[in-house]
């Protein structure tokens, strides 16, 4: 039972990450590969505030969102100078920079040693050390993020994001300063990712830089491409599939000496086949 609760918690956290990135990539067409950096900032802020200052977990989420918001505003502004593939490469670079900061600012992050002993929250006498309660908390956050994403994407603002994705120059001549729209959604997406980071830090009770490397950003991108871009349900379905898939492959019965490698190969193969035969993802509304 604990195993299934663990998987469900991971699905919740990755759903939040996927929903956040879907706002940026799926709806706005900004191919950002730096979401793990914002995820990491949220996680580290919670880890540091809880272990060094004994701060309330929920307050640490808010502070993490504010810090991530400021950092993402600066990163987003720089990235706004780039288009298309150059935007993707620039965002790639920022993920590496933030990862390097986690790794090398040892006085703050303890570098590769990471930060252990992050407390799980307690709220109104509910102790979230119990994983089932933690799952409920993650589910509440995931639902909240889902409804916020729905609210954004169904608004006139969301329609403008899609128009930017389709033809930025064309929508500009109708009076939209697209820079403001792009920056706003980039910051909102980053702040949402920081919530996932705080939940992750508290759940695992330990953070280190390897959880927020470039590969993690690519994994989040794979989730939304698989589930379907520009569809909030698709982001959640993608998270369910890509969290469960490697776990399900444990039960395939590969020989034990090559099981781990075979799981990776099979996992990669399934992704390639899906992209070949269903490039818009499972329920996507937009093709890159």
């Amino acid at each position: 039972m604990d195993y299934f609760v663990h998987i469900a918690i991971l699905i919740g956290i990755y759903s939040i990450l996927a929903l956040s990135l879907n706002l940026i990539v799926g709806y706005t067409g900004l191919l950002s590969i730096t979401q793990a950096a914002f995820y990491g900032i949220g996680a580290y802020v919670t880890a540091i505030l809880l272990t060094s200052f004994g701060m309330n977990f929920f307050l640490s989420i808010v502070i993490g969102m504010i810090i991530t918001g400021v950092v993402s505003l600066a990163i987003g502004y720089v990235l706004s100078k780039f288009d298309g593939d150059y935007f993707a490469l620039g965002s790639f670079g920022f993920n590496i920079i933030v990862y390097s900061i986690f790794l090398n600012w040892q006085s703050l992050t303890r570098g590769p040693l990471g930060i252990p002993g992050i407390a799980k929250p307690v709220l109104f006498n509910i102790d979230f050390s119990n994983n089932f309660y933690f799952l409920i908390m993650v589910a509440v956050f995931a639902l909240l993020v889902y409804f916020i994403s729905q609210f954004i994407t169904r608004s006139s603002f969301g329609r403008v994001l899609k128009a930017i994705r389709e033809d930025e120059k064309a929508i500009e001549v109708f009076g939209y300063n697209t820079l403001f729209f792009k920056l706003t959604i980039f910051v909102i997406g980053a702040m949402i990712a920081s919530i996932a980071g705080a939940l992750f830090a508290s759940y695992i009770t330990y953070v280190d830089p390897t959880s927020f490397a470039l590969s993690e950003s690519i994994f989040i991108l794979a989730i939304i491409i698989l589930g379907g871009l520009a569809n909030n349900k698709g982001a959640v379905i993608g998270a369910v599939c890509l969290v469960i898939l490697p776990e399900a492959l444990r039960f395939v019965g590969f020989p034990s000496d090559i099981a781990a490698q075979m799981r990776q190969v099979t996992y990669g193969l399934i992704l390639i086949l899906l992209m070949l035969y269903r490039p818009q993802g499972l329920i996507g509304e937009y093709k890159l």
């Binding site: 603002f157 403001f180 706003t184």
Partner: peptide
């Protein structure tokens, strides 16, 4: 045009508010 958007949304997008 805004290709991957419905015809109606191609019109709505020029009718609604410009402020973020």
């Amino acid at each position: 045009l805004f290709e991957q958007m419905p015809v109606l949304d191609n019109i709505f997008v020029v009718l609604t508010k410009r402020n973020v």
